[in-house]
Design a protein around this nucleic acid. Structure first.
Length: 769
DNA sequence: CTCAGGTAAAGATGA
DNA sequence: TTTACCTGAG
């Protein structure tokens, strides 16, 4: 037996620093963990769950942990399994939206939804709204299109509104119209037995609020609720969260107000800033030690973020060395920018950095194109990391619409999508008559087809074609609900004729599409296998929903980008997609006014100063998120002009360097802290930065006067000498390098010269050997 | 009713 | 450059 004084290694507590441990060991009651970038917040959540389960006797299925992205949820589950083994799988670890879906499946009856309800994604939403606008006889005059309406509806939903709760003073013509569209939209969703993304959060909250019994059941079932990326919660999520943790208030929220980047989706940083006011008695723990980045990277990130307004002050620190200086690539246009990035990426790989440890980040997806071209030309393998790409393909969406219609023939939106896909001679005129009939009789389109004989003016051919369609859908409906997902998908693509038609076409493109359908079948089979391999849940109330419905839910919520990043490939993604990830080397491109911070060129309504500065703050945080992804090397790049697609066709637009660059001290680039005096006898260069806000400090030097175009080959970014190198100086002779500060030819090198002593000399005067 | 070919527009981020 | 919508011929 071991002496009591010897403590055994503790996998849960040992790897933690003091602040992390405090958060993990915190007992009951609200806990706010302010976790800077790279400070180990996922670790805190995972270890806290493990601690609750192992040391405090909490059953894993009484723990709910919600995250924002599937990636984060997956990582959390994985790490939990490392600590807890199989038990870890019983904890509820998922995204907010997946939780909402799970909740609604379980409470489908109360929610007035069929158990196999469909989830409409934004494309579905847009199609639906477009249809409603058409029904209302509103044409898209460019001012009031589906997009405008939808963004209002989304915003309302995120704020937790319903059509009747929108404040009256906000009403104008557009608002009234949008509300009418919204009412019809909700009616259509209800008829189709479908919900949209917003509903996944809103409806559980509404159900819980309305029903005390339900609330009691759910708020007691989770003994502990943990929330990741809390700064990005919107009011609907926050409401749901408060309802779920109930009186017990065992809620642990982890987040970083500096990384709040989803304001546009309704997220409210106020949730984290004011959390301790909403939950009196909150224990606040700050995690400020960064384990990810070099001191240079951190200093740069801090220089940018510290100018944001309304933030909880925190300063990250690290024990890591300064590391390589930042680099800036200044290119004439986006093609040159991409090429220089590609060659820098190549050099980086040459130095031994694995491709999958390199990321190219950008503000908008469109920026990926030139980078892709340049990487392809240099034969650098890359992968674009995007939420969904496979499931966005038209043929895959067609198949999914067939499946949804098979599960629920009342879904008019899906009906309209697939009724003539593949083409079966049901055109616009036929559909018009069908819709008129359905509207008059109060039927769904599918029901209307069932009574097609009563519709006048239908051509015989149209009637026959509708009959065939009806038969296929009815047949699928009969069979598909009870089948495994793989078989169901197989049946749907066969019986609908999708597959046959593609095969018959004989073009390469059609062959590709057929291939994609097969891939969908394979994905469904894989889904079945994964389900079969899963242990039956230990949680006694877990219902068993139809497999196809679960598969469709996975498609809607998860997409396909969650697999492991393919080995060795450089990752290209937006700044938003990069949140939560880290790489050895990060390229942050498009560091220009208008790109980062992004400025919507089309925006007519001039936002007020307050709005604009809130937007700017968010852009700043986005820049901060991007910079803090880097472990050791951060390369910024910009193009002096960029092709823009405006009303008058493609045009070159001149771009000024981003104001965020002006926030970075030149030393971080390995430049002298003051710009060298210019040889020309011009007036001192002092100018306001382009786009500077009133009151913003004046930047003391002109960006363009700083020689950013110093040799940017990665070699130049490195210290020219390291300790131990033998060097020769023209007058001092041979010596041994003690230290080297800075990079490039102007680096200051401390050399021990035998018989002379230590001297600081400039690198360019030294030769090796 | 279908399809090919032309034209006008590209509205940012994502569960 | 790509995509979505429209038009006119078959």
């Amino acid at each position: 037996m071991l002496p009591a004084a010897v403590s055994l290694p503790d996998a849960i507590l040992d790897p933690l620093n003091e602040a992390q441990r405090e958060a993990v060991l915190h007992g009951d009651g609200p806990l706010l963990v302010l976790a800077g970038a790279g400070s180990g917040k996922t670790r805190v959540i995972v270890h806290r769950i493990a601690h609750l389960v192992r040391e405090r006797g909490v059953a894993p299925w009484h723990v709910l942990a919600v995250t924002f992205t599937n990636k984060a949820a997956g990582e959390m589950r994985e790490r939990l399994a490392d600590l807890l083994g199989l038990e870890g799988a019983d904890a509820w670890v998922q995204t907010f939206h997946a939780f909402g879906a799970r909740f609604l499946r379980r409470e489908a009856a109360r929610a007035g939804l069929p158990p196999s309800f469909a989830i409409y994604d934004d494309d579905d939403q847009k199609r639906l709204v477009k249809r409603i606008l058409g029904d209302m006889g509103i044409s898209d005059d460019g001012r009031f299109g589906p997009r405008d309406v939808l963004s209002r509806i989304d915003r309302w939903k995120n704020l937790g509104h319903s059509p009747s709760s929108v404040r009256f003073e906000d009403h104008d013509v557009e608002t009234e119209r949008s509300l009418e569209v919204w009412r019809r939209y909700e009616k259509a969703l209800a008829r189709a037995g479908a919900v949209d993304f917003g509903d996944l959060l809103l409806r559980p909250a509404q159900l819980l609020e309305a029903d005390a019994e339900l609330r009691a059941r759910w708020s007691t079932r989770f003994r502990h609720v943990l929330v990741d990326e809390f700064q990005d919660t919107n009011p609907a999520q926050y409401r749901l969260l408060r309802l779920l943790c109930g009186e017990r208030r065992n809620v642990c929220v982890v987040g970083d107000d500096d990384q709040a980047i989803y304001r546009w989706r309704g997220a409210d940083v106020g949730n984290i800033l004011d959390f301790d006011q909403d939950f009196p008695g909150t224990r606040v723990v700050k995690l400020e030690q960064n384990y990810r980045s070099t001191a240079n990277v951190l200093a740069a990130a801090h220089a940018v973020i510290s100018r944001a307004s309304r933030r909880r002050e925190k300063k990250l620190w690290t024990t890591r060395e300064a590391g390589a200086p930042l680099a800036l690539l200044v290119a004439q246009d986006e093609h040159e920018e991409a090429q220089r990035i590609a060659s820098a990426v190549e050099a980086e790989r040459h130095r031994g950095t694995r491709g999958d440890e390199i990321a190219v980040l950008y503000r908008v997806n469109a920026q990926s194109r030139p980078v892709e071209a340049a990487l392809r030309a240099s034969r650098v393998p890359y992968v674009i990391v995007r939420g969904t790409s496979f499931y966005e393909r038209a043929e895959v969406r067609d198949a999914a619409a067939w499946l949804r219609l098979a599960l629920n023939p009342a879904s008019d939106l899906d009906f309209l999508r697939v009724v003539n896909r593949p083409a079966r001679g049901i055109g616009e005129k036929t559909l018009e008559r069908l819709q008129a009939f359905a509207a008059a009789e109060g039927l769904t389109l599918f029901e209307a087809v069932g009574r097609r004989d009563e519709i006048e003016d239908l051509k015989a051919a149209a009637r026959r074609n509708l009959g065939e369609f009806h038969e296929v859908v009815a047949g699928l409906h009969r069979d598909v609900a009870s089948l495994e997902a793989g078989v169901a998908v197989q049946e749907a693509v066969t019986r609908s004729g999708l597959m046959e038609r593609l095969r018959a076409e004989g073009t390469d493109e059609a062959a590709d599409k057929a291939e994609n359908l097969l891939e969908l079948v394979a994905a469904a089979r894989e889904f079945d296998e994964a389900r079969a391999a899963e242990r039956p849940p230990r949680d006694p109330d877990e219902p068993v929903p139809p497999p196809l419905a679960r598969f469709l839910e996975q498609i809607a919520l998860i997409g396909d980008a969650d697999g492991p990043t393919p080995e060795g490939r450089v990752a290209l993604m937006t700044l938003h997609a990069a949140k939560g990830l880290e790489f050895d080397a990060v390229f942050l491109c498009g560091m220009e006014e208008g790109m980062l911070p992004y400025e919507r060129p089309w925006r007519r309504d001039d936002p007020g100063d307050g709005e604009r500065s809130a937007e700017l703050d968010e852009e700043r945080r986005l820049c901060y998120v991007g910079m803090t992804r880097a472990r050791s090397r951060l390369v910024l790049s910009l193009a002096r002009r960029r092709m823009a697609y405006g009303e008058a066709g493609p045009r070159w637009r001149e771009r000024e360097p981003s104001r965020f660059l002006g926030d970075l001290p030149p030393e971080l680039f390995g430049l002298p802290s003051r710009p060298p005096p210019r040889p020309t006898p011009t007036a001192p260069v002092v100018r306001r930065h382009p786009g500077a806000l009133p009151g913003e400090p004046v930047i003391e030097y002109d960006q363009r006067s700083v020689d950013y175009s110093f040799d940017q080959r990665p070699e130049a970014g490195r210290a020219p000498f390291t300790r131990g190198d033998r060097v020769t100086h023209p007058s001092l002779g041979e010596g041994l390098v003690r230290a080297c500060d800075g990079v490039g030819p102007d680096a200051k090198v401390t050399v021990a010269f035998p018989g002379v002593g230590e001297k600081r000399v400039i690198a360019k005067f030294l030769r090796r050997g």
